[in-house]
Amino acid sequence: MASTTDDPVTRRDFIHVAATAFAGVGAAAMLWPLVDQMNPDATALSLASIEVDLSPIDTGQAITVMWRGKPIFIRNRTPEEVEAAKAVQMDELKDPVARILGETVQEPATDEALTKSGYEQWLVAVGICTHLGCIPKGQRIGDERGPFGGWFCPCHGSAYDTAGRIRLGPAPTNLEVPPYEFLSDTRIRIG
């Protein structure tokens, strides 16, 4: 290039290419705000955590609360259900990984990993089927709970066990567990 810069044809070509390229870069840069505006906005990102009082939930019962626009299943499991969940071997699972939101290290989907120690009867999970986003049945007494006694998704027949793990059907992964902590024996904070 250096030896031909005196050639007017080359220099002119260069200026056209430069101008076009510059226009392209500008257009691409303008595109970003138009794309980024669809991402969650500052209000959505700052949504507060919620606190839930567990005392009204008897053994065997469950409630659903809303957190960041999603239903959260909170189930007070019976000792039998806890035992059934603990007895499951990892190689029986369709998805052997505990899906805990905000965790980068993935642990095996044991019941211990999915609950808080000392509060094993409480299962807290995002109540959204990991297949296509329906809300599985199993929260209310009398609901169909599927062959594994946890939850059953009416849309495409995914069945979850009592630890929210996918056992049968098209859903690829276990129910997600939101970040939460126990503030007292009967109170949790989600988020």
């Binding site: 200026i15 056209h16 510059f22």
Partner: peptide, 17 residues
């Protein structure tokens, strides 16, 4: 600054043509 440079480039390109 971007638009200033772009305008100059476009002017040179136009003039060359």
């Amino acid at each position: 600054i971007y638009l200033g440079i772009f305008a100059i480039l476009m002017y040179l390109s136009k003039r060359a043509l």
